[in-house]
Design a protein around this nucleic acid. Sequence first.
DNA 1: TATTGTTATACTCTATAACTATA
DNA 2: TATAGTTATAGAGTATAACAATA
Lengths: 161, 161
Amino acid sequence: MARRTERASPGRRGPLDLGILPGLLGYRMRRAQLALYQDFLAACEPFTLRQTQFAVLEILERNPGAAPSAVSSALGIKRTNFVPLFDELARRGLAERRADPSDRRARGLFLTKAGAALVARARAAILGHEARLAARLGADDAETLRALLERAEAATQMNES
Amino acid sequence: MARRTERASPGRRGPLDLGILPGLLGYRMRRAQLALYQDFLAACEPFTLRQTQFAVLEILERNPGAAPSAVSSALGIKRTNFVPLFDELARRGLAERRADPSDRRARGLFLTKAGAALVARARAAILGHEARLAARLGADDAETLRALLERAEAATQMNES
DNA sequence: TATTGTTATACTCTATAACTATA
DNA sequence: TATAGTTATAGAGTATAACAATA
């Protein structure tokens, strides 16, 4: 055990005063997002999937043959950064690119059988994780939070006309 | 103008089906956080400060002489990553490390005059930005969102006993 | 032995510019 | 001339291991 020694002028004891930070939506959002993301990672650990990787698989399940640019823009990822992300899924045999006969520049993205099987299991785990979180918050509050997050995203100046 | 050509089997038209994503708190949180962060960056652009840099200055204003490890842990940053972050603030003459006479391993962190002046201006800009966001959401809903984010962070399994 | 600050390093995420092959 | 996909590259953010000085 290290003894707590008194300290001279530099360095107060006890928890720090965070000033205006705890009242800021941006600060609260960052903290909550980090905490939830850690949670999500833990839930997905058996599948070795991160948020974005799951999102790509989920979208391909619903939209077989979707174009890389469509998927990346739907997720708010630059198409240039989507390439290595998808490469990794392809390398793991979860998804694949196919040539588009009608436009030889384009590609269609598809899940493999293994990808479809994995996304089904991951989806179940994620829904379970969400259900546990909602139970802790209370179902009504969880839905309120979800709706407010959607409105906050839309209310951003970024989304101004 | 590029003509919209019909496409064969790979590639549906129209917006993609996002599956379960829009209903997930984790997904909504990530989208909202990104949007708010872009907003925040725009508000702080005149000061060339990112969220974390502002947070450090704000904390030092309230806690002069705080230890690097105290500040970094309060912000959820590893102390090892705090070093280059603070180096940059020091390089810009906004904050400085001072020796601690009572423990020669330790350092106390302080704002410089320039740092104090900058954080005051940045704080005003950030509070203005928050006020505009709150006005768009409605004051009550903004406070509800803030409180729910705090509860969501606490409700995380990460924070389990 | 443990703690404070630090260095070195690697991996992920993000951002910009530019290339290719088509259209 | 514009578009789809891609390459190369650089900047942040984050993670682990290990070190020196000090307690």
